[in-house]
Design a protein around this nucleic acid. Sequence first.
DNA 1: TTATTAATTTAGACAAATCTAAAAATAGAA
DNA 2: TTCTATTTTTAGATTTGTCTAAATTAATAA
Lengths: 224, 224
Amino acid sequence: MYQPTATEENYLKAIYHLSNTGIKSVNTSSIATSMETTAASVTDMLRKLSDKEWINYEKYKGVKITRKGEKVALGIIRKHRLWEVFLTNILEFEWEEVHHMAEELEHVSSEELIKRLDKFLGHPKFDPHGDPIPDQTGKMESHDKFTLSAGEAGEKYTLTGVTDHSTLFLKHLRKYGLLPGVTVSIAEIMDYDKSMLVKVSKDKFHLSLEVSKNILIKKYVGSK
Amino acid sequence: MYQPTATEENYLKAIYHLSNTGIKSVNTSSIATSMETTAASVTDMLRKLSDKEWINYEKYKGVKITRKGEKVALGIIRKHRLWEVFLTNILEFEWEEVHHMAEELEHVSSEELIKRLDKFLGHPKFDPHGDPIPDQTGKMESHDKFTLSAGEAGEKYTLTGVTDHSTLFLKHLRKYGLLPGVTVSIAEIMDYDKSMLVKVSKDKFHLSLEVSKNILIKKYVGSK
DNA sequence: TTATTAATTTAGACAAATCTAAAAATAGAA
DNA sequence: TTCTATTTTTAGATTTGTCTAAATTAATAA
Ligand SMILES: [Mn+2]
Ligand SMILES: [Mn+2]
Ligand SMILES: [Mn+2]
Ligand SMILES: [Mn+2]
């Protein structure tokens, strides 16, 4: 119907993420925090998004994204993650460098461009951070909710993603070779602080609970 | 010093092009025409660009781009043309499809992104329309000013570019296989209307003056 | 040289997105 | 339940880029 401005797209994406990954309800201040703006600005924008039927909004009652709004958000997330794949796989950026570039590229409007980019990249299902890429209809694989901190000593796991997307954390993990697809064996879990000794290829090292809590994994399934 | 907004970038690019390819002086109305906006809007913007020292502007006296402004313009033109190469060579778009997408992509700000894209593409010197791509310092090869309409019967030429960048014209040329790099032999030039009979690989066909005037060429130089 | 036409600038307004400060509503504690 | 603290909304401004209509300046023709 309407086509969203880049700003509206960013708001819808933030609201979508807060609706799904969010612990608390989607209220004005949580949106303000995640958008790094003021509550007053958010209130202004909520009225606009509501007028365009991308959200249901009643004063003081919080926000619920509509089916229409979700479609817009998923379209932007698809573009964002495909561009991130391009930047890492093709232009050889590190995984902590791509987010801010993708924040701009996700607003380039051509649908045909994204269709061809997707094809060129071989229809990837996950972005460099292990986040699933929605297809054209908005469908995507669900994320593993299992974190390394919940793993057991003596078991083998495959790293599938992260829950902290900060540059600092991503850089830290890359130093250890902890990237999606890598196999991680838990050698020992310390009773005292829940830190763990892990093995990644030939390397053995220590991970704090702080770190292991933010690593997503699945059970390792044999060779191939 | 300042960093330009996307709109300022578009104005500077337009002013740069009018300054160089332009027959007439760069005045308010010619900018308005090329930007598809009103003279009043242009006057507003000229003041802003002047404040930021990207142009020299005096009321009623017209515009001259500064060295600083030229640097900004060349940076945008570099991005625009590199993205056009990406879209045609990598994503396999046709040469008439890429311009409007490049109009958006040229405003993505990362310098490092463009550096890596340039490397990935093999440091191309020309875009899909035969226009030269400025390097990081703004230097570029100069365009051939020789058009096919000035060619001679019996001679062989290499197509190097076009002067009309409209979708209609580009589609038309593609139908004949008339793309940069192609060899064109002039078989005959009609005295009456200056139309010509040309040979391109195995095909022979007629071109009107209207068409040949908008094709840039250079003398054909042997094999290799 | 004066009158007319054309180009340019100014005036005033608007839409989008933002902000600060003040008012209003809601939630939590006593 | 009543007071207080927090959250949210409103009021009023600001910036960027745009517009129409009116005024001004420059160009040209008589
Ligand atoms: Mn990202
Ligand atoms: Mn990501
Ligand atoms: Mn172009
Ligand atoms: Mn081009």
